[in-house]
Write a protein that binds this DNA or RNA. Structure first.
Lengths: 211, 211
DNA sequence: TTCATTATTTAACAAATGTAAAAGGATTCT
DNA sequence: AGAATCCTTTTACATTTGTTAAATAATGAA
């Protein structure tokens, strides 16, 4: 090993490249679950991705901006939230190996009243949606990939409606424990309460009776 | 006019063809809002469409079947509903000029616990989804068309979650009046109540105070 | 570690919603 | 028209959830 490459291996640049490749690799494993991609398509996608490292409580996207980025959570947890009469309401959480995007803004090109915030230190891959949508024309595989990704998101959202519409607060809490038991350990209860559509006090009461 | 064509014009066959073309035309006007289609794509789509005339309370799709049809409501109203602990719960309504499909079954290919029922006499166009998905390979325009249609459905569903999650019953009722004032006139209140996530009694109370 | 801050639980009371049953209206069918 | 059925409202009471405030627990920064 030359002296030069020794210094390179210890350099910031190396660390950055290493992280970038490692993180992006996880994204492509995620993509592969949905759709086979040609080398050219993969390369085109890589060029519109960038890696972001964020700490708890930091904001990924602010309220009021039109969403033009799709995020992949490689590590950590993020949430979408908004304010209703001054109180902070969590719309959804995204854990590692999942996509997070404010679709109501992304697909309508209107400003979003929602923000994305980091709940647990996170490594995120940002996908430039403006460039992505242009790739749809040249790479039908990419259009199909994201069609399938968002179809899955659509299904999850429909199932969530069923949960909110006619289940009691306790049923919703128990369902959450079932589906993602980690959520309770990793997310502050104040966020979980509004996600379930109830107040923190009600959540505390439910936890007291269920325990 | 020959005697033959006179009889043809009065024939069942003529009525059927006339209705079919008229109805399908409306569907293609709907499609045009989303995506330009080539003549070949339009023709391919027409071949997988059929027209159905249904009366109030008739069932379009039954509980337990895997959804392999996408419907377009040309006239009338349909609803998706399911049973929770024996009570009938309306998940959504579809009015004229809109698509109705049980996406949680269509996109997962699992049996649906939900049914589609006619709320007001309806003229429906059924699109064979199995054949449609095959057309995606040969006609990227068609894939794009339905991608956009379902993206819009996704956005509507996300907005609905916001409505259910942290609005009071009264707010949800008032929002419904705002968005579709016809709904109240054309849909029985018992269906509207469960759609809003409340009981019929609560809806009556709200109506008494709001009036 | 210690202090300050933030998160969670508990309590007491108010408001909203659910349940069951009955009464009144509207609609449909014969 | 008349009977039967279905839909909607009303009532009384039970239960759930919200609100406010205080107490306790946990966390993070100096």
């Amino acid at each position: 090993m030359s002296l030069l490459s020794f210094y390179f291996l210890r350099s910031e640049l190396f660390n950055f490249r290493f992280h970038y490749l490692y993180k992006v690799n996880k994204l492509f494993i995620f993509f592969a679950q949905f759709q086979l991609l040609s080398n050219e398509a993969e390369k085109a996608l890589q060029e519109i991705c960038s890696v972001i490292f964020l700490k708890k409580n930091e904001e990924l996207q602010a309220i009021g901006h039109t969403c033009r980025t799709i995020y992949f959570v490689e590590k950590g947890i993020a949430r979408i939230y908004y304010y209703k009469d001054g109180t902070d309401i969590t719309e959804s959480f995204s854990f590692e190996n999942s996509i997070i995007a404010r679709v109501e803004s992304l697909f309508t090109e209107k400003p979003s009243r929602k923000a994305i915030q980091i709940v647990e230190d996170a490594d995120i891959i940002a996908i430039n949606a403006t460039k992505l949508f242009k790739l749809y024309d040249t790479h039908p595989q990419i259009e199909r990939l994201f069609r399938k990704i968002f179809e899955k998101g659509y299904v999850e959202t429909v199932n969530r409606i069923e949960n909110l519409q006619f289940h009691t607060a306790e049923e919703r809490y128990l369902a959450l424990i079932q589906e993602s038991p980690n959520a309770l350990r990793r997310i502050p209860l104040k966020y979980i309460a509004s996600y379930l559509g109830i107040t923190q006090v009600t959540l505390s009461r439910i936890r007291a009776t269920v325990k």
